[in-house]
Amino acid sequence: MTASQIIFYLIAAFILGFGILSMTTRKIFRSAIWLLFSLIGVSGLYFWLQVEFIAAVQIVVYVGGIVVLIIFSIFLTQQSGIEMPKAPFKRTIASVLTVLFGFAFTYLLISKNNFQAGDGKFNADVSTIGTRMLSAGEQGFALPFEAVSILLLAAMIGCIVIAMKSKPEEK
């Protein structure tokens, strides 16, 4: 086993371990924090793959954005200190069986699939990504970029209309 493989298994164990912790803890706030560690582990996996940009995006979007949102919504809706009730035994059995089935199924599918090894040429530095993001020609992503901007505009207008709905009678 090479050093690289050992690092891979360490990162994988890190991700899975914190994933399991976040599923099994009885306090919802802790669950969110364990999820945070698990997501940091995923970004570590991207660093291991040498796609630094994706790793940075993973940290900015998931760790910085989504987990913070989750924590906000926990504080706004739940009493975070209270322990959740223990799951009934039947449900535990059912979920364990589901997980085992899902794992076996995925393993079978992946092992039967004939993956082709890549040619090793993979250029993912930030300047290449930036150039391709805004180029309109072959291998360019200008059109999806513009489509996303219209999507954001529409989503913003929708949010404003819904949020403005209070006090219809006062005027």
Partner: peptide, 21 residues
């Protein structure tokens, strides 16, 4: 592009469904 078009065609619809404010 297909996926982005699909999202663009469904997310604003949810706001529209809320238009009986």
């Amino acid at each position: 592009m297909f996926y982005l078009g699909l999202e663009l065609s469904t997310i604003p619809l949810a706001a529209l469904a809320n238009f009986d404010l």
